[in-house]
Design a protein around this nucleic acid. Structure first.
Lengths: 215, 215
DNA sequence: AAGTTGTTGTGATTCAAATAACAACAAAAA
DNA sequence: TTTTTGTTGTTATTTGAATCACAACAACTT
């Protein structure tokens, strides 16, 4: 399944919640399309491939969509995350308000110097060496890397070794599995998403400077 | 020019710096491809469309590539950014080490309560109402939105009104120009990149839960 | 009941980007 | 000098997602 598609599904669902809160019960493909910025056609096709039925005239039932999207997106399972690196970014994430409203919970932070980390967020902070044990006990699947670049690769290895299966990486070096073919025994695959703030900004600089360009 | 392409160009350049630091002078398309995870063919095609010449046998000259990529990516111009919202995320960004190494500089932060913001980062903090004046004076092009969701839309409007042309949005609502057709006089276009951490995490949850699925 | 409207569902089409394939050719080797 | 090698540059092909177009048909209207 396509990355863009999954992203759209999450957007649909978020939007559907808002519509439901407003008291609506049904939506049309063009409502959804307008709202998330895609064509109605694509909305219908998305629902089509997921076998989410609509009514030939009355559009789609919001409750039905939410329910089925929850299943497709696996939202019945708990959405628990750990954070490696409790510096500026790590602690900012631990206090990130929007996680709560989305049902995402940071259940632990790990650092090489946990005694120096402020505990104001209420998230328990452990030493990195306890990660493997913690992940095993809690069956944690997803982790965030918020360590300095220099530690990123080692942290990746630790997380994979601990059994983490999905990683959101904030270090500004691109992490990939099989960097040099070392990590690929028969362990279950691990998905990595890199959020590279520098790269995003550079992209913006490129765009804003290219106004007079031939495109 | 394609977004993915631009991203690749930035990656090439970053990699080329590292190779240069290691003492290398030339690279082959397969070196670059392996390193950033694309096919050598694509590397050659990228350079081809930019008219970056290689030698039929000896590969590409690293210095030449860096120099020309700098021009293409507009890296000769200063890379200055302002930040709106000096909460957890905003201040974390102000102290983000990696910006320095990438030549990106946060030149000001704006908040509705600047007196409550710690000044430890060395970045001057102003009241939001001074943004427009500041942007005009400094000819700032790029801004980061790090305000709560509830303030995001208003901040977007303020930035556009101030003359900002590229925006990196950390609020977890997707910002777009022409949300309802209001903002589109004849002002120069403004590019928005949304970094939606919740969405990224949801995507990961989806992936890690879909192991037994038919894909 | 018959006609009209409006929306879905999907097969066909378009489009763009990635990949593959290979001719051209510079450098090294013989 | 001639041959071999290895890499570029570019054209052709493949791939896959988004868009288009329209038949099917449920609900409303008269």
């Amino acid at each position: 399944m396509n990355k863009e598609l999954i992203l759209r599904l999450s957007k649909y669902k978020r939007l559907l919640f808002k519509l439901k809160a407003l008291g609506l019960e049904r939506v049309f493909s063009n409502n959804l399309g307008d709202a998330i910025g895609v064509t109605p056609s694509l909305v219908r096709k998305d629902f089509s491939v997921l076998s989410l039925p609509g009514n030939k005239r009355g559009g789609y039932d919001i409750d039905m969509l939410i329910e089925k999207l929850d299943v497709v997106l696996g939202r019945d399972k708990p959405q628990e995350v750990i954070v490696a690196g409790c510096g500026r970014i790590g602690t900012a994430l631990m206090q990130y308000e929007e996680f709560r409203t989305e049902g995402i919970k940071i259940i632990a932070g790990f650092d090489i110097a946990p005694e120096n980390v402020s505990k104001t967020s209420g998230v328990p902070i452990y030493h990195v060496r306890e990660m493997k044990e913690f992940v095993r006990k809690n069956d944690t699947r997803v982790g965030i890397i918020a360590v300095p670049d220099s530690e990123a690769a080692a942290t990746l290895e630790l997380m994979i070794d601990s059994g983490i299966r999905g990683i959101l990486n904030f270090a500004s070096i691109e992490l990939r599995i099989n960097q040099r073919g070392e990590i690929d025994k028969e362990e279950p695959a691990c998905t990595i998403h890199n959020i590279n703030i520098c790269l995003e900004l550079e992209h913006l600089f490129y765009q804003v400077n290219m106004v007079n360009e031939t495109e």
